[in-house]
Deep mutational scan, measured.
Amino acid sequence: LTDEELVTMSVRELNQHLRGLSKEEIIQLKQRRRTLKNRGY
């Protein structure tokens, strides 16, 4: 997933992508998404 996709994707879509990932990967992705959102994309 690109940063842009992460930010513009709805939470529902995101959760579908996260299905099948490990807990660590999910946590990393969610942190990255929060960081991007805070940057004001």
Score class of each variant (00 low, 15 high):
R39H: 13
L6S: 00
R34D: 11
E4C: 15
Q16W: 09
L21W: 05
E13R: 05
V11Q: 11
L21G: 01
R33M: 11
E24L: 10
R12M: 11
R32Y: 03
Q16M: 13
V7N: 04
N38W: 06
T2L: 04
T2S: 11
T2E: 03
L29P: 00
N15R: 15
K30E: 06
R19H: 07
D3K: 01
V11L: 08
R33W: 15
L36A: 06
E4G: 06
E5M: 12
T8V: 07
I26Y: 05
L14T: 00
T35P: 01
M9Y: 00
R19E: 08
E13Y: 01
Q28F: 13
E24D: 11
H17M: 09
T2M: 03
K30L: 15
R12I: 09
E5I: 07
Q16R: 13
K37G: 03
T2C: 01
T2G: 04
G40D: 13
D3Y: 02
L6Q: 00
I27W: 11
G20W: 06
Y41A: 12
L14G: 00
R33K: 05
S10W: 00
S10Q: 03
T8Y: 08
T8S: 14
I27T: 09
H17D: 00
L6Y: 00
L21N: 02
R19Y: 06
S22Y: 02
E5Y: 05
S10D: 06
E4Q: 10
D3W: 04
R34S: 08
Q31N: 10
R34W: 06
T35Q: 14
S22E: 06
N15E: 13
R19L: 09
D3T: 01
I27R: 12
R12V: 10
L29W: 04
L14Y: 05
R12F: 09
S10K: 04
G40F: 13
S10F: 00
R34Y: 05
L1G: 00
L29S: 02
R19N: 08
M9D: 02
Q28H: 10
V11D: 13
S10R: 04
R34N: 09
T8A: 14
L36T: 03
L14A: 01
V7R: 07
N38I: 07
E4D: 12
L1P: 05
L21C: 04
L29T: 07
K23N: 08
G20P: 03
G20M: 06
Q28N: 11
N38Q: 08
Q28C: 08
Q16K: 14
V7M: 14
R34Q: 11
L6H: 00
M9F: 01
G20R: 07
L36N: 03
S10N: 07
N38L: 09
Y41C: 07
R12K: 13
R32T: 01
E25K: 10
H17W: 11
E5H: 06
E4Y: 14
V11C: 12
R19A: 09
G40M: 14
L21S: 03
M9K: 03
T2I: 02
G20H: 09
R19S: 10
E24Y: 09
H17P: 00
M9P: 02
V11G: 06
L1N: 00
T8R: 15
H17V: 11
R32C: 02
K37Q: 10
Y41L: 14
L36H: 03
L14E: 01
Y41T: 13
L6N: 00
Q28Y: 14
I27Y: 11
E4W: 15
K30N: 05
I26V: 12
K30V: 15
L1V: 07
Q31H: 09
L21I: 04
N15S: 09
Q28M: 12
G20N: 10
Y41E: 12
E25N: 06
E5W: 05
L29Q: 03
N38H: 11
L1Q: 01
I26G: 12
T35H: 14
K30F: 15
N38E: 15
G20I: 05
G40P: 07
T8K: 15
R39W: 10
M9L: 06
E5R: 08
T2F: 02
T35W: 15
I27C: 09
R39V: 11
E24A: 11
L29G: 01
I27M: 12
Q28I: 12
R19M: 10
K37R: 11
H17F: 15
E4P: 03
L6G: 00
N38T: 08
R33Y: 15
N15F: 09
K30G: 03
I27P: 02
